[in-house]
Design a binder for these strands. Structure first.
Length: 584
RNA sequence: GCGCCCGUAGCUCAGUUGGAUAGAGUGUCGGCCUCCGAAGCCGAAGGUCGCAGGUUCAAUUCCUGCCGGGCGCGCCA
């Protein structure tokens, strides 16, 4: 038995996963495969042809529901004119009840018009699957680690962290929905120079100094929260953060005690903000632990032993230029102590050793220079880590405007907009949606005035409103003594035959693919875009087709479409960490 | 100067990995509630997809070069 071409096997698994009876697109693909095979046997097409068959939903309903460019792709290798080949392919298509008719259009597209009852089966599929609709096992349970936010514990989280949190968490939800075993991880840089700066700042406040005093530490943190930390420290308070509890010594001269307290204080602060944002981590990884466990030293020794280091100007350098960097990097400073990048390498080695073949780091693009550096360091370890590991998702800067004026993001100035500000002013749902609904690699303008205006402009309300509308219809039906009857509804789905209803049906059918695509490309904004489209289709349909009619069959069938829409809206919103309210 | 990212309607942004007449929101103008929620719907107007080449049957999408903007180019993280 000869092996099947790879694409063919792919198509087989795809069909089995997606139920060709339900998913029109896969039905069409398998029909086209049948046609291609038939034409090969007839000698019309060359036998060694292994086309990747692409079927897309149409933009214009005049072009039917789905279209393929197959005839255009095969025109050259078959030596036929595109439209002629399209005719031949259509003639060779196996018979199917799912297709009402086909047309050949334009330069040689084949347009498929779905039979209404076949297309409408998606409603039954959605209702049967419920929360599981759109979920898949593509990831096969493979372990994936996503590191995101990873803010320094030196201040409250700002909008940039918020974007990272929204994108990172949504990405995790997408990966979970596609069958991956996801670990959410937050890396705390609690061992570097900026932490000493934090301790000095708190100490200065504890001694009653302010940023304008002559002895205020250079580059000290000026934010008001430093005062709060200092007051709590001097009051001998106890704070709990993640895994540890720290009680203040109330001694303004003990810098180590101040540092331990301040870090715990700010970690607690950040954790509370993240919780309010609906984001929770599985692992909080402390940079300091890498020193305590000797991981940093071990990493240095390995790099030295591999011969990738050298001494210069009293410092120790890593020859990262051997691995694609544009210049070598200092790993141990002249005055002793390591640069941040060394523990970074040690940390990522640790991720690898924990068995994560896929690691995704979600970070601000202002740190993109670390990408090459960390990868280079990992290569220099020579422990079999693949080139280009780990993956990165970098988000561009967030500019915040208020009253049309940019609000500067300056941690040192202490006047930046925090996640907490946004949650309090705009609400969690809107904040999460805004921050995750745009491509990570384009800059984002967050207009506080616009976002806080509680009404009209907010796209998330548009989606939530569609959800609440369906809930309202169901309540209405209950009140009228005509509760939804599932068995009546799903037996007559062919009644969903208006243009508006068909638009919703086609949109629903696309959801699993959208989730798969968004997860694969690490682009949560595709889910946001889809939800806006689905909500739009639904609102249009709602205005065009009256649901609460006297006819039991018609009413229940239309309710079923609403219910299926509600289910998909709910599933999609959940992927973004946004709630699906029953009333607004 | 070098590296990464971006440039699409007045504004904010999508564009399903190369498809047909480039979409949505917002803003402007005009319609739709004695009717399931008007936070909604319908219509109009608004574009040399930064510019110029190249690859292709087909380019907003891929390649090259410019122009413009952001970020980075620390023995900071």
């Amino acid at each position: 038995m000869t092996a099947l071409p790879l694409h063919y096997l792919g198509a087989c698994t795809r069909r089995h996963r997606r139920h060709p009876d339900i998913y029109m697109k896969d039905t069409i693909i398998s029909l086209l495969e049948g046609a291609v095979d038939a034409l090969k046997h007839q000698g019309v097409l060359p036998n060694d042809l292994t086309p990747t068959i692409k079927v897309d939903p149409t933009k214009d309903k005049a072009h039917g529901d789905y279209a393929t460019n197959l005839a255009l792709m095969l025109a050259k290798p078959s030596g036929m004119k595109p439209r002629e080949l399209a005719d031949t392919l259509v003639a060779a298509l196996p018979a199917s009840d799912a297709i009402q008719k086909t047309e050949i259009a334009g330069p040689g597209f084949i347009n498929f018009f779905a039979a209404t009852d076949a297309a409408a089966q998606i409603v039954a599929q959605v209702l049967d699957s419920g929360d599981a609709f759109g979920r898949s096992l593509i990831g096969k349970g493979e372990k994936v680690q996503v590191e995101f936010v990873s803010a320094n514990p030196t201040g409250p989280l700002h909008v940039g962290h918020g974007r990272g949190a929204a994108i990172g968490d949504s990405l995790c939800r997408l990966l979970e929905a596609t069958g991956y075993d996801v670990t959410r991880e937050f890396y705390y840089n609690d061992a570097g120079a900026q932490i000493k700066n934090l301790a000095l700042s708190v100490q200065a406040r504890a001694k009653g100094l302010g940023p304008d005093d002559a002895s205020w530490p250079e580059d000290g943190y000026r934010g008001e929260y430093i005062v709060d930390v200092a007051n709590d420290y001097m009051a001998g308070k106890t704070v709990t953060a993640d895994d540890r509890e720290v009680t203040a010594k109330a001694d303004a001269d003990d810098l180590d005690a101040i540092q331990a307290f301040a870090v715990a204080w700010l970690r607690r602060e950040q954790d509370l903000d993240l919780k309010a944002f609906g984001v929770e981590f599985d692992v909080y990884f402390l940079e300091s632990s890498l020193y305590e466990d000797g991981k940093v030293e071990a990493t240095v020794e390995k790099l030295v032993a591999n011969g990738h280091t050298y001494e210069k100007d009293g410092a120790m350098w890593l020859r990262t230029t051997d691995f694609g960097d544009d210049k070598d990097r200092v790993m141990r400073k002249r005055e002793g102590g390591y640069t941040y990048f060394l523990p970074d390498v040690a940390y990522h080695l640790n991720k690898w050793q924990r068995g994560f073949k896929t690691v995704i780091n979600e970070q601000g693009a202002d740190h993109h220079s670390t990408v090459t550096r960390v990868r280079a360091g990992l290569q220099a370890l020579e422990v079999g880590i693949p080139t280009g590991w780990p993956d990165y998702v970098l988000h561009q800067m967030v500019m915040v405007t208020r009253s049309g004026v940019e609000v500067k993001l300056s941690k040192r100035a202490g006047s930046y907009v925090t996640i907490r500000d946004l949650i309090d002013e705009v609400g969690r749902d809107a904040t999460r949606f805004f921050l995750a609904a745009r491509r990570a690699d384009s800059q984002l303008t967050f207009d506080i005035d616009l976002a806080r205006s509680q009404s009209n402009d907010n796209p998330v309300y548009y989606i939530q409103y569609a959800h609440a509308r369906v809930c309202s219809m169901l309540r209405k039906a209950e009140e009228a003594g005509q509760p939804f009857d599932h068995s009546i509804a799903t037996a007559h789905l062919a009644l969903l035959d208006s243009d508006q209803e068909k638009a919703v049906l086609n949109r629903l059918a696309r959801y699993p693919e959208v989730v798969e695509h968004a997860a694969k490309n690490r682009e949560p904004q595709q889910v946001a875009q889809y939800l806006l489209d689905l909500a739009g289709d639904f609102h249009t349909c709602y205005n065009a087709v009256k649901v609460m009619v006297d006819d039991d069959t018609l009413r229940n069938t239309r309710l079923a479409l609403g219910l299926a829409t509600r289910q998909v809206l709910r599933n999609g919103l959940d992927l973004m960490g946004v709630s699906a309210p029953e009333e607004m």
